Amino acid sequence: MNFASWPALLVVDVEGNGTNPPDLVEVAALPVRDGAPDKNTAKAWLTRPNRPVTAFATRVHGLSNNDLADKPAWAQIAGQVHTFLGTAWICAHSAHTDYRVRSRT
C-alpha cells in the first residue's frame, strides 16, 4: 500500500462536560503517518467548560471540575486546535457527535 498517496489523517477524540449540548473539556488528536500512529506528534488540550462537569461525565472520562479549574477557556486554545487539525481528514469513533461539539464551539 502506498501511504504517500494518503491525505493527512488524524484520529480525533473529544470529551464533554456531560451537559446537553455538551461543552468541550478535552480534544486529543493523533496523526497517522505512513499508515501508523505517530505518538511523537500527538496533541491534547484540556479546556475549562462554560458549565460544570457532571458527575456522570467525570465517571466516564475522569476529568473533574477541579482538574479543569485552571485550564484555559476554549477561546484561548481554539486557534491552536484549529491550526493543528488544519485540513487533515479526521477519523473518530463517534464522528457525528465529535463534529457537532467542535462545530458548536
Rank of each mutant, 00 (worst) to 15 (best):
60 V>R: 06
82 H>A: 10
18 G>K: 01
59 R>M: 08
53 V>E: 02
78 A>G: 15
44 A>I: 06
77 I>C: 07
37 P>F: 10
57 A>F: 00
21 P>E: 00
56 F>Q: 14
102 R>F: 11
72 P>D: 05
78 A>K: 15
100 R>M: 15
23 D>G: 01
98 D>K: 02
44 A>E: 05
24 L>F: 02
47 T>R: 02
37 P>V: 15
103 S>Q: 15
61 H>T: 03
100 R>P: 02
58 T>L: 04
71 K>R: 13
10 L>E: 11
45 W>Y: 09
5 S>D: 13
100 R>I: 02
28 A>T: 11
70 D>C: 04
77 I>H: 03
32 V>F: 09
44 A>D: 04
35 G>M: 11
12 V>S: 06
55 A>V: 10
55 A>R: 14
41 T>I: 04
52 P>H: 10
92 A>G: 12
45 W>I: 08
51 R>S: 13
44 A>S: 15
41 T>S: 14
94 S>I: 01
84 F>M: 05
77 I>Y: 05
3 F>M: 05
73 A>W: 07
49 P>C: 08
67 D>S: 11
15 E>I: 01
74 W>E: 03
91 C>F: 04
42 A>M: 09
15 E>Q: 05
75 A>F: 07
82 H>E: 13
64 S>D: 06
18 G>E: 01
63 L>E: 03
91 C>I: 11
51 R>E: 11
99 Y>R: 12
43 K>A: 09
72 P>K: 09
14 V>K: 00
64 S>K: 07
36 A>N: 12
87 T>M: 08
31 P>D: 13
17 N>W: 00
89 W>G: 15
32 V>P: 03
15 E>S: 01
14 V>G: 00
88 A>Q: 13
29 A>E: 03
